[in-house]
Design a protein around this nucleic acid. Sequence first.
DNA 1: ACCTGAACACCGTTCAAGT
DNA 2: ACCTGAACACCGTTCAAGT
Lengths: 217, 217
Amino acid sequence: VSQAPSSRPGRGTLSRDTLLAAALALIDRDGLESLTMRRLGAELGVEAMSLYNHVENKDALLDGVCEVMVGEIVSHSPAPDEPREASKADLRALRRVALRHPHAFPLLATRPIGAYTATREVAERALRRFRAAGWDDQGAMRALRTSVRFVLGFAMSESQSERSETVGAGAGRGTPLVDELLRQIASDDSNELFEFGLDVVLDGLESQLRRRSAGGT
Amino acid sequence: VSQAPSSRPGRGTLSRDTLLAAALALIDRDGLESLTMRRLGAELGVEAMSLYNHVENKDALLDGVCEVMVGEIVSHSPAPDEPREASKADLRALRRVALRHPHAFPLLATRPIGAYTATREVAERALRRFRAAGWDDQGAMRALRTSVRFVLGFAMSESQSERSETVGAGAGRGTPLVDELLRQIASDDSNELFEFGLDVVLDGLESQLRRRSAGGT
DNA sequence: ACCTGAACACCGTTCAAGT
DNA sequence: ACCTGAACACCGTTCAAGT
């Protein structure tokens, strides 16, 4: 998957990869609603109908955009040896995609893409790490799914749903802690909160592991 | 906020609440893409343009649908005394909304609604519970946001993104644990996984609390 | 093989007009 | 005060036609 051409391409430079990259770039720049077959065509110097030569329809185009984002999940830096740090590195890589594509990221959480299938090798390594830490197969799978879902929820909230909690509205009606919460949201300490969340999830997994291997007789 | 009328209403029975309930019912039945001003009008026995008398525009309509769902979050059963069980009850109530409205739920995670503002009292009680457990204000807020985000990610994955992981595709290429994961996803043990996740998050929070009050000198 | 123009069925939304 | 018809600018998509 390559980058979008900066301005207009030479004739015949159209391909599926070009489309997907241009679509993602358009979403990043102007938002999800701006992605329109006609607009994307214009962006590429072509009529909307030409796009159908490279992509089944708009739905397939959106799936393709998800593919591109999933492809960006792979961690850039080499995996740490220490298992807990290795897990953190993978989960941070997932969050980083959300930060890079705040407008497009909801597609990932919203569409039935085969995310584990598409990240087979990364997922397999993560599962092996959990096994090495003492989980059985079943437990390793639950541990992975739990941590991935946490990051997904975190990233979604971060880039979407917590925007526009307003401090003023309804303050001073006997909910002082909520008032403070809203101020905290506004001040945006995202990175800190994410790292806190990572520790919570990984601590919680370790705790469950201990409880289960102890109680399992 | 009341229920949608079963068939066509008498003339003049149109109100904002009627619209919102009918819109949510339409999404529940036919999916998010089926919610159209024209379709919703037809559903209510009225032309699409009449809707604009009760709702600013489609965006405001979607915000209203979110309002309705947020209003459904309140737990039905009385809050348990035991703090951990009380937290679980709240978080289960949040997930239940996702299960009841799988097609509409992405709106909640995707739109900048003031969720904490709208659930002020529930949020305040939750924060007070964390305070009583030993967190300071800052810690209580992080604990709440962390657990809410976890449930959000869980519910989104559950009702959306993990659909259609296919077992067959690419199996037997040295990723046996992933193959097993895909089989597990297909067999769908959602409730069990959710309860596991709840314990992970709450254990993790307790662990962080201990670590911080111990290390804080 | 790839691109286009015209067309179709559908959107959200505005506005003057009806009652 | 609420509803409507006609209209506008925009969608996704099909298809015959061009090169």
